[in-house]
């Protein structure tokens, strides 16, 4: 993979908004004129089980849409971290929900970002938006967080009729970016 390509893997429990968070990242790339792909895991185990999706954002054409060695891993529960920690590229980044995952990372050759996303989301009145707090943190860590950019992408994934949800998602992103 060339340097102008970023591969993301979002993982967690079904219901944590894993697929949505991935879709937001993909749309963020799309609104910036990049080539993107988004591929979910699909299977009989979805309800209450693990969910994951791989996103590729690239200046060039996206070849294989399958993310097996992510640059950036998001783990929102322990089974996901256990399963995918070893797959992250050397020098990559791991963002994890430290309110649900109590163990430290075993990898020392990646950058680790522990964010108590689920707890923060609950304390701030949007308990289902821990996913977006993590996304805010990722964008800030990548130096890609800006108000116009995230709002353009939010407008793509949330209907304008749900102005309340737009606002809450934006707040969650802000919270994550400033954490």
């Amino acid at each position: 993979m060339s340097t102008d390509t970023k591969e993301f893997l979002f993982s967690g429990f079904g219901g944590q908004g894993i697929l949505f968070a991935g879709k937001f990242i993909a749309y963020k790339g799309l609104t910036e004129g990049k080539n993107v792909s988004w591929l979910p895991s699909y299977g009989p185990e979805m309800r209450g089980g693990t969910a994951s999706c791989g996103i590729i954002i690239s200046d060039g054409a996206v070849g294989s849409p399958i993310v097996s060695k992510p640059d950036i891993l998001v783990a929102m529960n322990l089974p996901s971290l256990d399963r995918y920690e070893a797959s992250v590229k050397k020098g990559g980044m791991i963002f994890y929900d430290s309110s649900l995952i109590e163990r430290p990372l075993t990898r020392t050759d990646v950058k680790a970002y522990a964010v108590p996303a689920t707890r923060l989301a609950g304390e701030n009145g949007f308990p289902t938006l821990g996913n977006m707090i993590l996304v805010g943190k990722i964008l800030a860590a990548l130096g890609e967080y800006n108000e116009a950019g995230v709002n353009a992408a939010l407008a793509k994934v949330i209907s304008a009729k749900r102005a309340d949800m737009l606002e809450l998602n934006y707040k969650a992103l802000e919270l994550g970016a400033n954490y």
Binding site: K23, A26, L30, N35, V36, S37, W38, L39, P40, Y42, V62, P65, I66
Partner: peptide, 10 residues
């Protein structure tokens, strides 16, 4: 195939 059906692209 399943990948083509499930993946999202622009």
């Amino acid at each position: 195939d399943g990948t083509m059906g499930q993946m999202m692209e622009p």
